[in-house]
């Protein structure tokens, strides 16, 4: 359990994180969303124990990060932004070094290294200096280092940044595989990732916590939630008809694409399907929108920035 209370970090006059409170329980994969410079990394650095909070407290599995830093660090695995490592070391020497500092040795350490090397497909680069590795491999070495001691808490700052789509998929399934009994916090600005791995999302902007909900609940805030989009060459004509439907509040046309927004709480998909058959419209695509996360993200962060 991670418990964050009234967390504030300021540098002189600049307030990077402002009075943030939340708790995370085992089994939760929490996605940190927010524009660049929103305070995501600063918050993660404070949880990991690199920066000290100006005000407020952080407790990780019952250990206060300020008063008992060593105990807190032992239960945390941390991947800093950009996955820094000691470039002149080989992958295996680096993992061994981190393992020793984490108090592992002998056969335990060997077994753990073998395990993370398998999980992250690092066998091929085990004896190469980290400086010579590709960005994707470097990121995976950073991840391997973070999960080496099988921590209860994982804090990953942009874990899939710089990976190709296949590698992204691998890392996501790795995170999902570990999610059952751990606390995982990841920061990302790839919104699809939130759907893929997180079961909770927090949006931070300007250092303030603006939203805390499941990805589905966030999507439901979108004005596109339950909207119906059609693609047809006769877009204008269809739009005209749809405007006349009682439950439709608004119709937008963009090229061949027509989007009808329902009045709040109404369902319009069934009605529109019927209309399509009735009028025998030439429609190539019909879609019921779940809501658009990027639009919600923009709305929330823009409003947050203004207030």
């Amino acid at each position: 359990m991670i418990k964050i209370e009234n967390l504030t970090k300021s540098y002189g006059d600049l307030v990077a994180v402002k009075d943030i409170s939340f708790t995370v329980s085992p089994g939760e994969v929490l996605g940190f969303l927010g524009p660049n410079g929103a305070g995501k990394s600063t918050t993660m650095k404070m949880i990991a124990g690199f920066l000290s909070p100006t005000e407020g407290s952080i407790s990780v599995c019952g250990h206060d990060v300020e008063s008992d830093p060593m105990a807190a660090r032992r239960v945390i695995g941390y991947l800093p932004e950009g996955a820094p490592a000691y470039g002149e070391m080989t992958t295996s020497a680096f993992l061994r070094f981190v393992g020793e500092l984490r108090g592992m040795d002998g056969s335990t350490l060997d077994a753990r290294i073998t395990e993370v090397v398998r999980q992250l497909n690092l066998a091929r680069v085990l004896e190469q200096p980290i400086d010579t590795l590709s960005k994707g491999f470097k990121r995976r070495v950073g991840l391997a280092q973070a999960i080496l001691h099988d921590p209860q808490v994982l804090i990953l700052d942009e874990p899939t940044d710089g990976l190709d789509p296949n590698q992204k998929q691998e890392v996501r399934s790795l995170i999902q595989g570990m999610a059952k009994d751990k606390i995982i916090i990841i920061s990302t600005h790839i919104l699809e990732e939130v759907h893929a791995v997180c079961n909770r999302a927090i949006i931070i902007s300007g250092g303030k916590l603006l939203a805390d909900a499941t990805p589905d609940a966030l999507e439901a805030r979108s004005r596109y939630h339950q909207a119906v989009t059609l693609v047809s060459p006769a877009a204008e004509q269809i739009a005209g008809t749809l405007k006349g439907v009682g439950e439709v509040s608004k119709v937008e046309v963009e090229g061949h694409q027509v989007t009808a927004f329902p009045k709040s709480g109404k369902q319009i998909f069934a009605q529109i399907s019927t209309l399509i058959t009735q009028h025998a419209w030439e429609v190539s695509e019909v879609q019921l929108e779940r809501g658009r996360l990027d639009e919600v993200f923009r709305t929330i962060t823009m409003q947050g920035g203004r207030s």
Binding site: R74, P80, L101
Partner: peptide, 14 residues
């Protein structure tokens, strides 16, 4: 410069 200080000082090392 490389940022490894952040790694080092978040390991259980004083």
């Amino acid at each position: 410069h490389t940022g490894s200080i952040e790694l080092l000082l978040t390991l259980p090392v004083t």
